[in-house]
């Protein structure tokens, strides 16, 4: 499938999800080595009209692509790159379904311009995989049955990952406060909090990554 980077309609029309995903890594974006570190100088962009060239570091790979200044990181991840683990919920910074890590800290991708993500390390739920295995937080969500419909789960898992990076052994209250930016319409909160607790305990035993 030839990818048109300028398209703004939904991806995957007439294409199976797996087939669509399969094309992305090879064609749409180029992987290069030598990631810029956070805080490193980023190129100045002056008064662009239309599309702008940018480089985003996503899940440890650098991707060069053209974006419109108004495109959010969420839009670019899903609609331009086909990295669809990050979900669209409210699209107004309230529900947390689009949570990604930026330099290890949870952010709402729906409220982040793609151009503002330049020079930072972006991690999506796909980036939490340990090779072909689930990462420890993902695994803890499975073991605690911490979802029903699953739509909010990617955001919950990424938020939990960020919480545990900042606070490896949170109290129950700290877990509740740390997960406050993620809504679950199914109301699986009790299980979600248990999953975060389980992941924290697992890391305490040296089981985490």
């Amino acid at each position: 499938m030839a990818r048109d980077r300028n398209r703004t309609d939904k991806p995957g029309k007439g294409v199976t999800r797996r087939g669509f995903l399969g094309t992305v890594g090879a064609g749409a974006v180029a992987a290069v080595t030598g990631l810029p570190r956070p805080g490193e100088a980023v190129p100045e962009i002056t008064e662009p009209k239309g599309m702008v060239e940018t480089a985003l570091s996503i899940n440890g790979r650098m991707h060069r692509l053209l974006v419109e200044p108004r495109w959010t990181l969420l839009f670019v991840l899903r609609e331009q790159m086909g990295i669809t683990g990050t979900k669209i919920g409210c699209a107004r910074g309230e529900c947390g379904a689009c949570t990604v890590l930026m330099d290890g800290s949870p952010r709402y991708a729906c409220m982040t311009l793609a151009l503002e993500a330049q020079g930072h390390e972006i991690t999506t739920v796909e980036g939490l995989m340990d090779g072909e295995e689930l990462g420890d937080v993902q695994q803890a969500f499975v073991e605690e049955d911490a979802f029903q419909c699953g739509y909010c789960t990617a955001g919950q898992v990424v938020a939990a990952q960020g919480l545990l990076a900042a606070n490896p052994s949170p109290t129950v209250d700290e877990i509740r406060a740390g997960m406050a930016g993620n809504l679950c319409r199914c109301g699986a909160y009790v299980h979600i909090f248990r999953a975060v607790e389980r992941a924290a305990k697992g890391r305490g035993k040296g089981g985490g990554r």
């Binding site: 703004t8 980023v42 100045e44 962009i45 662009p48 009209k49 200044p69 108004r70 311009l113 151009l115």
Partner: peptide, 10 residues
């Protein structure tokens, strides 16, 4: 989708 704008980061 946000409305169109130009962007600069001096």
């Amino acid at each position: 989708m946000l409305p169109k704008f130009t962007y600069s980061r001096p």
